[in-house]
Computed example of a mutant assay.
Amino acid sequence: MFTKISSALDFDIRDSRIYWTDVKSKAIARAYVNGSNVEKIIDYGLDSPEGKIYWCAIQGHIESARMDGSGRSIIVTSSRPFAMSLYQDKIYWSDWETGQLSVANKHGGNKTVLHSNLEQVTSVAVYHDWGRQGWTTCTSTEGECPHLCLGGSCVCQAHYTYHDGRCLPPSSFLLASTKNAVSRLIIDTDDCPDSPLPILGLRNVKMIEYDPVHNTLFWLDGRAPAIKKWTPSGGPSGGSGSISVVVGISHHPVAFALDPVYRVIFWSCASEGTINATRLDNGSSSTSLVIQTHPTEKPRYLAVHASKG
């Protein structure tokens, strides 16, 4: 399910549909949660019990219509309405021109200003202990789905395949790093081509290595500097996991290479001109000197031929 530029989303729990605004085509569209039956119907706000959709119009008012786009009507006027939210019989919205946060009856009239002198409120949400109540076929099967339950069907996260009650990870993929993220990339897929790994606090990632046997990612943190590792919690399909340091800041590592067969990381220290080896055994590590280079040499890039030892 692809859109040109979507700026707002909402979900109809009764019909298992997603509604969104498409800024480029200036329309409101909808589709089922599995991505099927995409259609344009007419910024935001679903009233599921009454079967209506509400949105902010650039012309200076808030409108409503039935879920299929028919029966349009103006609810209230406002100079430049931007963000809005619904709760029971009330509609709340922000106005970028007046700097106000207001409320009105969603059937029209009785406008009240709640706050003034606000600077471009971009989102409004109503919190109440009752929340949104409803029932779908997901309610009865959600506990059986390892990742997600959408519209009564089990769905896996990006790049995973659902089979016999399990979400199976991809058999082949690429890993690519940017300064503050590491992503998994799948070349031949109709799914999202890249999926960021849930690793928190990444800063200045210089290089990465992956251990497929233990499903562990290693990277060089250029800010520390240090070599760190991350293994997702609960196995390949687990959550955020934990981060630990393999080679600390006192050694000043500048490059490394992984031998996944013998579980050894080779790394260079620019300040001392050495190439070292750190063995990874049962969560602990031990380091030994491999090569002492000339003091003027500063090895920057390493490669390991694992089968040659």
Rank of each mutant, 00 (worst) to 15 (best):
C192W: 09
A181T: 13
L175T: 07
L197E: 05
T189S: 15
S172F: 08
S195V: 13
L197F: 03
K179D: 15
F173Y: 10
L185A: 10
K179C: 12
I187G: 09
L175G: 02
T178E: 07
C192M: 14
P169W: 01
C192Y: 12
T178W: 04
N180L: 07
K179A: 14
R184D: 08
L197C: 05
P196W: 08
K179N: 15
D194S: 09
L175K: 02
L197I: 04
I186W: 03
I186C: 09
S183Y: 09
C167Y: 02
T178M: 06
R184A: 00
D194L: 06
R184T: 05
C167H: 00
R184E: 08
A181K: 12
D190I: 13
I187C: 09
A176L: 01
P169F: 01
C167E: 03
C192T: 14
S195D: 14
S172W: 06
S171I: 01
R184I: 02
D188A: 11
N180A: 08
L185N: 04
L175R: 04
P193N: 12
I186Y: 05
N180I: 10
S195W: 15
S183P: 07
S195Y: 13
L168P: 00
D190S: 15
T178L: 06
S183K: 08
N180D: 14
S177Y: 02
D188P: 12
P169N: 02
L175F: 04
L175Y: 01
D191S: 12
D191C: 05
P169V: 01
A181R: 12
L168M: 04
T189Q: 13
A181Q: 14
C167K: 00
L185E: 05
L175I: 06
F173T: 01
A176N: 09
P170D: 02
T189A: 10
P170S: 05
P170E: 02
R184F: 02
A181S: 15
I186Q: 09
P193A: 06
L185V: 15
S183D: 11
I187F: 10
K179F: 10
D194Q: 11
I186L: 10
T178V: 01
N180P: 06
A176G: 09
I187H: 12
S171G: 07
A176F: 04
P169Y: 01
I186T: 10
T189P: 10
P196A: 01
